[in-house]
Design a protein around this nucleic acid. Structure first.
Ligand code: MN
Ligand code: MN
Ligand code: ZN
Ligand code: ZN
Lengths: 136, 136
DNA sequence: GAGTATATTGAGAAAGATTCGCATTAGTAT
DNA sequence: ATACTAATGCGAATCTTTCTCAATATACTC
């Protein structure tokens, strides 16, 4: 039961929210748009209104349960927040999404922000390229 | 006359395209949405259809004259391509956009891509924070 | 466990950004 | 100047996301 997970972050444990959270945990695909979540859940018979999917994903984001990304597409992409910050590398041919974490880059970002007098709150690094499977 | 600039990149030198290109060069604001460009030009009396602004900015992007960014907003942001690649740091309070270039980060990105078997084509790094003017 | 106050849901309408369709107009090369 | 073709501008259409609101489900009290 994830009921408690929701209550812990201040959200009522409603059926749609539980369904969506369970779906995200069970999905083999980590990065999905709201539409992806909506359609995939329909196929599983777990149907939830599209407006609710959008609302709940936004609530999960505020609660820190999921992270929202703005890749170079026209829509938001969400992923379950597993506690480990990372950045992304996307294949421009097949759309595959890989992840990485680089302490050197993380540190440099803080230095740069500090040098420009900024207090850093977040960052998003997306590398685009051609994945091994899509070469030539 | 920028007529030649347009022809050089394979675009017919039409009045709307010249107006937009001149506007971008003259603007003190470097980062603008299509809507920003459209409205600012209206105010200057240089009016061009909104659809044309969208089309032309996209053509300029393909031609390498401008760069398109996807910051965490619901729309694209364009800037004149002055030939020097750089990344961005945005103030989450006032919306200011600053720029930076860090060779260490650039290099690390290539290493990471190579390690994962990717051929890098592009990247986008956006740092969010609170600018000096917006501290407390 | 039923009763109640209140937050949440779902469906469709609405909004914001961008693209499309097409008749009209403007560049460009004879 | 003429003619061929590409580009423009308008509104309609599309896509993603949010909003409205009546119906419903959750959590709390007794
Ligand atoms: Mn990820
Ligand atoms: Mn810039
Ligand atoms: Zn690929
Ligand atoms: Zn600021």
């Amino acid at each position: 039961m994830d009921s408690q997970d929701l209550k812990n972050v201040g959200l009522k444990a409603t059926l749609p929210r539980l369904k969506i959270l369970n779906f995200l945990h069970a999905s083999p695909v980590r990065h999905m748009s709201a539409e992806d979540v909506y359609k995939s859940m329909l196929e599983t018979g777990e149907d939830v209104g599209l407006a609710t999917v959008y609302r709940v994903l936004t609530q999960f984001e505020s609660a820190g349960l999921v992270t929202r990304h703005h890749f170079d597409e026209g829509h938001s992409v969400f992923e379950l927040n597993l506690g480990e910050h990372h950045d992304h590398i996307l294949c421009v041919k097949c759309g595959k999404v890989d992840e990485f974490f680089d302490p050197v880059i993380e540190d440099r970002q803080y230095d740069i922000a500090r040098n420009q007098g900024y207090t850093i709150t977040d960052h998003a690094l997306v590398v685009y390229g051609v994945c091994p499977d899509c070469q030539d």
